[in-house]
Design a binder for these strands. Structure first.
Length: 777
DNA sequence: CATTAGAATAACACC
DNA sequence: TATTCTAATG
């Protein structure tokens, strides 16, 4: 039993220390900082300085001696946020706070706790964390083992289901019958089999990091009590995005002292698909009766127009607590809206606009690229921008795109490290077994599996045994022996304390992996070698291989430390919690944003989440926010056309400046060009027509089309084709991307029956067919 | 066993 | 369109 440190005398002595960090706070923030005891719910709108309040609160806890750094549990949503918070607390206190060991994401904290009590979950404390890729491969094995058709019931689907269950803290035996219909009712059984496989691999997936810890807390009074004593104060950021498992975790820990402070904004709840429950935030006062609720509503980030536009959009949501953000700023740009013919033009326009801003345009000072961000709904939108910016040489950085650690060569290399660290890691072993190619194929693997099964050991040991007892085909012996010897040698080196960076290099060389890529003459080979070098370099920052592997599993954000100024491209999700002076929000088209899938799957709920995403996007901007959409976009190499997002209708006209791009709606006057648009006569001259555009027949027509023909005009024809009628006539000769030419034999609504010349009679959706005379060439 | 051509399929967001 | 999977061939 430790006595409570920081109480009594120490606290009094320290209370006298200066607290300059309080001066910078408004009354609400200050209340949030100084109400230290008991439950506190901070409802903090976008840009209201909640991070400032949170960090000040931590500083206050430390300065007043209420808690030591290691007695505060602070949960953030992303690793980036955790880093930033650590740094800002350090700044407030004028020194780096050594050790806030319990400041991190739920997952990072989960690992930490689980490592201490792994045996209670049937694991060794050296367990590995599987990434999504491994998870899918493992699930495929499980599905195959049960003789289920993996085409109909895909591993991906099962992964989603299990993830969902884990988010709700359901172990296989706790899955309610009513939820168990997928996979012909066998999903819980598959889930159980999967958990068993994980255990035997000494591995966990992301969901387990929470689930196991909750289970341990629920079943081991003593351990829970220990942590309750330990974490004297609990802080939770982005509370609106916590799922049930996380909620239970927090409630278990806070139940006794109730010193829990949750910060959230129901309007920024954008992780419903990951099991987040906005209900958690709405229920807070029930869970913690007598909670102090503090609202932060003064926005320090955005100009009035931006704020008004964002507020108007979010106001369309039914289910919200309701908040009124205000600002005492007066001046500022309106939100800009612009439509484009296609995605490429959108990218081109944004590129030019950005360049104009760096030179100084509009009423704004020249801007640094660091101050600008393009926020997209889906990561595939990034490509058009990357292509464009590469050609014009505009430096950019992608956050959260295809990640470094997901590349083939990096995953291969890491698999080698993983097996070296843990021979039990069958998944990694499978990966390296014949990588690089060493003549050990499926047959060889089967023999290894047989040996491993017979002795009840891992594949790696199975291979060693098979070699020893001679059950491995003669043709495989040479290569297999080399592999086993290599692994043993590397393992021994690791044990002898050989520097892990050198060891990594050795592994890559001795395994033949580096040579493999050196010998490869394909154009991407040099890049891959380059990446491997980078990987080895990255190891330097860690103490050993294991530490590195853990880092990689949890921290997938590539926080590239770049000195050069770069523009940022990222998803809306990744942008939460960040702010930029200049923000571009491209791709506001129905179907893309709001995403069709989101609406199909969860209906109104999904739509409202999309709308919150729009709100998050707009509120990232401090000075200038530009929304854009494209009439046509390439999807899977097919041209698709779309209507402007319904969220665009929700932007109040008085806060929006509609720009007309060259070439659309018959526009094209120079005033619309970036660089040429700064005030002056042109502005006055075109204002009326711009407003008209926003309310123009063309606009209305596009709206009206929502009910009419949807999609596909494959033609690159001029703008006029937007107006061309799309109706088809019986007997008309048409062209289809896949089936070629054919004649229409029947029409039902938007479905056509077509007798194709090559493919025979097919039913197709009208939008995939074009009249044969406007085929693009 | 490896290579290859052709087919299938994919893409919503993240720790 | 770009990647991945499959079956057929070397």
């Amino acid at each position: 039993m430790t006595t409570a440190p920081g109480s009594g005398l120490a606290a009094q002595a320290q209370a006298a220390r200066p607290q300059p960090y309080l001066d910078a706070l408004n009354p609400e923030q200050r209340a949030a900082v100084e109400t230290l005891d008991g439950p506190v719910l901070m409802l903090a709108g976008a840009g209201t300085g909640k991070t400032r309040a949170l960090t000040a609160r931590i500083a206050h806890l430390l300065v007043t001696g209420r808690a030591r750094p290691n007695e505060i549990l602070a949960v953030t949503f992303t690793n980036k946020a955790a880093r930033e918070m650590k740094q800002r607390v350090g700044q407030l206190l004028g020194e780096t706070v050594e050790g806030m060991p319990w400041l991190g994401t739920f997952h990072a904290l989960g690992v930490k706790i689980l490592r201490r009590h792994a045996e209670l979950a049937g694991l060794k404390s050296s367990f590995t964390i599987l990434d999504t890729d491994d998870q899918i491969r493992l699930l495929r094995q499980v599905i195959r083992a049960e003789n289920i058709d993996e085409k109909r019931w895909t591993p991906r689907l099962l992964a989603g289901i299990i993830d969902n269950w884990k988010n709700r803290a359901w172990t296989p035996d706790k899955v309610p019958l009513a939820e168990a219909s997928a996979f012909n009712g066998r999903a819980p059984q598959l889930y159980a089999a999967y958990q068993a496989r994980l255990k035997s691999l000494n591995a966990v997936d992301f969901g387990d990091l929470l689930l196991h810890v909750v289970t341990i807390f629920q079943t081991h009074e003593d351990i829970l009590a220990q942590y309750r004593r330990w974490f004297r104060y609990i802080l939770v950021d982005e509370y609106q995005d916590t799922n049930v498992a996380q909620y239970l975790w927090l409630r278990l820990l806070a139940a006794e002292h109730r010193n829990i402070c949750c910060v959230g904004d129901d309007d920024q709840s954008i992780y419903g698909w990951r099991g987040a429950e906005v209900g958690n935030i709405l229920r807070f006062e029930n869970d913690f009766p007598g909670a102090t609720v503090i609202r932060l509503e003064q926005n320090y980030r955005s100009t009035p127009h931006i704020l008004a536009a964002a507020s108007a959009v979010i106001a369309a949501n039914e289910n919200r607590l309701g908040k009124t953000l205000w600002t005492d700023r007066v001046e500022g740009e309106k939100l800009r809206l612009i439509g484009h013919w296609d995605g490429e033009e959108e990218a081109r326009w944004i590129g030019e606009d950005i360049e104009a801003l760096t030179r100084g345009s509009r009423a704004l000072q020249p801007m640094s690229l660091e101050d600008m961000a393009i926020l997209v709904r889906a990561s595939h939108q990034m490509r058009a921008f990357e292509d464009r910016f590469l050609t014009i040489g505009l430096p950019y950085r992608v956050v959260g795109g295809p990640r470094f650690y997901e590349r083939l060569e990096i995953r291969d290399a890491m698999a080698y490290f993983r097996v070296t660290v843990s021979f039990d890691d069958d998944l990694a072993f499978e990966r390296i077994f014949n990588t690089p190619k060493r003549g050990l194929g499926e047959k060889a693997m089967q023999q290894v599996v047989a040996a491993a099964r017979a002795h009840g050991v891992s594949l790696c040991e199975g291979l060693a045994i098979a070699l020893k007892e001679g059950s491995l085909g003669a043709r495989y012996r040479k290569a297999a022996t080399r592999l086993v010897e290599g692994l043993l040698r590397w393992r021994a080196s690791a044990r002898d304390g050989v520097n892990h960076v050198d060891l990594a290099r050795t592994i890559l060389e001795e395994s033949g992996y580096t040579d493999y890529w050196t010998a490869d003459k394909s154009p991407e080979a040099p890049g891959r070698l380059e990446n491997l070098k980078e990987l080895v370099k990255a190891l330097e920052e860690f103490e050993n291989l294991q530490g590195f592997l853990e880092h990689v599993a949890l921290i997938m954000d590539n926080a590239e430390a770049g000195e050069d100024e770069k523009l940022t491209i990222m998803t809306l999700h990744a942008a939460k919690g960040l702010e930029y002076p200049v923000v571009y929000l491209p791709g506001w088209e129905d179907g893309l944003f709001p995403s069709q899938r989101s609406m199909d799957e969860t209906g109104l709920k999904g739509l409202e989440e999309e709308r919150r995403l729009a709100y998050v996007g707009i509120t990232r901007a401090a000075l200038l926010c530009t929304v854009s959409f494209a009439a046509n976009r390439r999807l899977y190499g097919q041209w698709q056309s779309a209507l402007p997002s319904r969220f665009i209708d929700e932007l109040p006209a008085e806060h929006v400046e509609v720009l007309t791009p060259p070439g659309l709606y018959g526009g094209g006057y120079g005033a619309a060009r970036p660089g040429g648009m700064s005030g002056g006569l042109a502005d006055v001259e075109t204002r009326a027509s711009r407003a008209d555009v926003y309310n123009s027949p063309g606009w209305r027509r596009m709206q009206a089309r929502a009910t009419g023909r949807a999609g596909g005009q494959a033609s690159r024809a001029p703008v006029v084709s937007l107006e061309a009628s799309a109706s088809f006539a019986l007997g008309e000769r048409v062209f289809h991307q896949k089936f070629g030419y054919g004649k229409i034999t029947a029409i039902e609504g938007d479905k056509l029956s077509v007798a194709f010349e090559k493919a025979g009679e097919k039913k197709v959706v009208a939008s995939y067919v074009s009249g044969s005379d406007d085929i693009p060439f």
